[in-house]
Nucleic acid binder design. Structure first.
Length: 186
DNA sequence: AGTGCGATTGACT
DNA sequence: GTCAATCGCACTA
């Protein structure tokens, strides 16, 4: 499975974070792929302290900061040393909704984890989880889908200035927790 | 040492 | 719909 396939595969899976206050979890409803050799990917220009976790074995968390304020959660997607990932852009909250509301200081359910920066804030993900193995026992992990996954839509990625053409964004169609444009562009 | 720029968000018209 | 805040990091000199 390559990076783009993984981005599609992750739709409907569940992110779980066990924190001292309890458990928060949510269904993944929107992802973006940043594959090998993608000029928009932050691993493109080689390994640095900032992106080193993107070079870990597939399934490890890569957390980094953009715009000085938003943490973004990626899943490393290729073999060790390659450098590629899948960005988790939106979740449908499942467990610990009250904790998410407190973390986000918002009561609106659809706003809790709609957007990559909001997602990490709701899930209390930050540099502490950078490099964590999401497929192993640990506070932050990926779980199986709780129900059948709906039809999956596809579009260009959001917010990029480089390599904007490929349709490497995936989302569950009709799901109210998806951010951004929901239309299919072919 | 200085500069420019985001895989965004929240506030505002 | 538009727009600016914000700051760590990569890059240049």
């Amino acid at each position: 499975m390559d990076t783009v396939e993984l981005a599609r595969y992750l739709i409907g899976k569940v992110v779980v974070h066990d924190i001292p206050e309890g458990r928060v979890s949510g269904r993944i409803v929107e992802t973006e792929a940043y594959p090998i050799g993608d000029p928009a990917g932050n691993a493109f220009r080689g390994k640095t302290a900032r992106n080193r976790s993107a070079f870990l074995e597939r399934g490890h968390a890569h957390v980094y900061l953009v715009y000085g304020s938003s943490f973004l959660l990626n899943v490393a997607s290729e073999a060790t040393g390659v450098g590629a990932g899948v960005l988790l852009r939106a979740l449908e909250p499942l467990e610990g909704i009250d904790l998410m509301q407190r973390s986000r200081d918002s009561a609106c359910l659809t706003d809790l984890a709609r957007g990559p920066g909001r997602l990490t804030e709701a899930m209390q993900v930050n540099f502490t989880q950078d490099g964590a193995d999401l497929c192993a026992a640990g506070p932050l992990w990926l779980a199986a889908p709780p129900r059948d996954t709906g039809a999956i839509g596809r579009s260009v990625r959001i917010g990029l200035t480089r390599n904007v053409d490929p349709q490497w964004r995936f989302y569950e169609r009709g799901n109210p927790f998806v951010s951004g444009p929901k239309r299919l562009r072919v």
